[in-house]
Amino acid sequence: MATEQQPRREWSRPTAFYNHYVKWAVYAAIAVFLVWSAWNMRISLDRIVTGWGAAVGLIQGMVPPEVTTQFKNDLLIEGLVESVAMSVIATIVGVLLSIPVAFMAAENIAPKPVYWTGRGIITGSRALHELIIAIIAVKAVGIGALAGVIALSYKTIGFFAKLLAEEIEDIDTGQMEAVEATGASRIQTMLFGVIPQVMPRIVGLSIYRWDINIRHSTIVGIVGAGGIGGTLLNSFDQYDYDFFLTIILAIIAIVMIGELISTYVRGRIQ
């Protein structure tokens, strides 16, 4: 068949950037940045060799994990129990505080100024890492589990209220209007028109957050906010590496148990 003109013999893939020069410039910039980052790490052969020696020494020091000393075992159990207790209380307190915040931050039911306040609280809670919050809490209420509970509860608000607010924004407004149409007050509308719709989600999210709080409760002790983290840091500072390993293994175990429980219960609720 006769084509009216010679077809093009070249084709190149359209790029997500404006043209191919921009594309290569972006790639080059990324490469340069990575090299710069790596350069800043000051990686040297010397360090790797020493590091390797230290790693071997560390592993020899760690294995086998220490499980025979009675008072250390007591410390371990005490720390773990405190961590789990902190996670439970922080979840309950955090969730109770989150629910009103979630209603404030749901665009479909809150007036604009309230909405922005709610969003602000959530952003404030999410912005800083739990360890930083824990430090401030330790300064405010002193070393101990209370600071940990405060830090974890505070972090719970950002997580829980954000997800719950999204859930509330997705609800069927028909049900809400039906309750309103019976002459119910605003609070009654929330109770009968909104809460029943989001209740399964509240329970599911609470358990999910508890799972996350267990993870966090094991480390806030590093800055003095209670739980097993303090014991971990002590063993680290005292070069007690075999006990260090025991604690890490115990933390992994407790985190995995928490995850199993959380997955199981959430599976049952759905």
Binding site: N40, M41, R42, I43, R47, T50, G51, A54, A55, L58, L131, R215, H216, T218, I219, I222, L232, L233, F236, Y241, F244, I248, I251, I252, V255, M256, E259
Partner: peptide, 21 residues
């Protein structure tokens, strides 16, 4: 996933000494 980043950091500080690496 089951070890927190700060615990990993402790481990690597022991191995490599403190620093960004």
């Amino acid at each position: 996933r089951s070890v927190n980043v700060i615990i990993w950091a402790l481990v690597f500080v022991i191995v490599l000494g403190s620093g960004a690496l």
